[in-house]
């Protein structure tokens, strides 16, 4: 009996030690809450992200990676930046985020009395259907003057029709319906969602990391949910109407919008041309007179000149994964140029 208690005490102490260590170095999540508009989203609080790059950041009451958003001032020009995990940029420190850098670049120009406030409204897993669906809420709650929608190929071929997402599309003749997945909980560790009483455990770093690794060790499929991987980008004809529908709806829903396109870079053949999705997005933006920025040339020139990739971090293989600080900086500069020309 004595040894049994010793085992329990030792195990608990070891778990507490690892919870602290992992929370400081790999991942510490603030937990989730069921938001009336966004559905299952991060709770307000501190978030530590050590996967790929490293950041200690704050999640506000809207589940956004931002400080609490105050009511709009008279001279404030508010820019809303929409995107997925690439723009949300947990891998990048707060001050290196594209929104933070754009903010400081815009406010450095003191020629006008305008005060620019760039808000990072990007969230992991989001795609144009989310931006379209939440447009009224954004307008009402955030009252932006301008919107940046950051999009990429995978928004179309991977995310749009994925029924494991909170928002997904279904096709009806030549149009699309936006569906809300009420049962959506999380795209990770779906195994815990089966047992509602144990969902809180996901907020602990030891469970979040340990369960995934343990199940991987045991070769058990953990039901990653949200993001089906390696979905082939076939049949561009299927996605052509979707791209057109997305561009048109973004234009209709957002008064002032610029679409910023994040290209997929093939680091082995940098000169490889545009993807079909990229060309279609560009041509529909032109057709419907929507401002369009393609980061391809900026990225490639930078890679050639500096020899540094714009994807990947010290923790991961360069050229793979999310965009890094270099890319965030390039995007901020390009948007700064765009807004300077615009105003």
């Amino acid at each position: 009996m004595k040894i049994f208690f010793k085992i329990i005490i030792a195990l608990i102490l070891a778990l507490i030690s690892w919870e602290v260590l992992l929370g400081l170095t790999i991942v510490k999540l603030p937990g989730t809450v069921n938001h009336p508009v966004f559905g299952n989203t991060y709770k307000q609080g501190l978030l530590i992200w050590g996967k790929e790059g490293y950041s200690i950041t704050y999640i506000n009451s809207l589940g956004l990676r931002e400080k609490e958003i105050a009511s709009k001032k008279d001279n404030e020009f508010r820019i809303l930046s929409l995107g997925d995990s690439y723009a949300e940029g947990f891998q990048v420190p707060d001050n290196k985020l594209l929104t933070a850098q754009l903010n400081s670049l815009l406010n450095k120009d003191k020629s006008s009395d305008k005060y620019f406030n760039v808000i990072n409204a990007a969230k992991s897993g989001y795609s144009p259907s989310y931006y379209i669906h939440f447009s009224d809420f954004y307008k009402k709650a955030l009252a932006q003057d301008y919107t940046i929608a950051i999009i990429m190929d995978s928004d179309f071929y991977r995310d749009s029709f994925d029924k494991n997402q909170y928002i997904y599309l279904s096709q009806k003749d030549n149009s699309y319906n936006i569906n809300v997945n009420k049962d959506f909980k999380s795209n990770k560790l779906a195994i815990f969602d089966k047992y509602k009483g144990f969902q809180f455990l996901k907020n602990y770093s030891i469970v979040n990391i340990g369960a995934k690794n343990l199940l991987h060790m045991l070769n058990i499929n953990i039901g990653q949910g949200g993001k089906p991987k390696n979905k082939k980008k076939t049949d561009i004809k299927k996605y052509d109407p979707l791209i057109e529908w997305s561009i048109l709806n973004l234009k209709n829903k957002y008064e002032n919008i610029v679409i910023l396109y994040l290209p997929e870079i093939d680091y082995d053949t940098l000169e490889k041309g545009k993807s079909d999705y990229e060309s279609l997005t560009e041509s529909y933006c032109k057709q419907y007179n929507v401002s369009f920025i393609n980061m391809r040339n900026d990225f490639i020139s930078y890679i050639k000149q500096s020899k540094q990739p714009v994807h990947g971090f010290f923790n991961t293989k360069p050229g793979e994964g999310h965009i890094n600080v270099h890319a965030h900086g390039l995007i901020a500069k390009r948007l700064h140029k765009y807004f300077n020309e615009k105003f």
Binding site: I7, L13, A14, L15, L22, I26, I209
Partner: peptide
Amino acid sequence: IKGLFILFFVILGLIF
């Protein structure tokens, strides 16, 4: 307790 703590700490570390 010290020995068991180190044992569990290492085993958990291997998983994490």
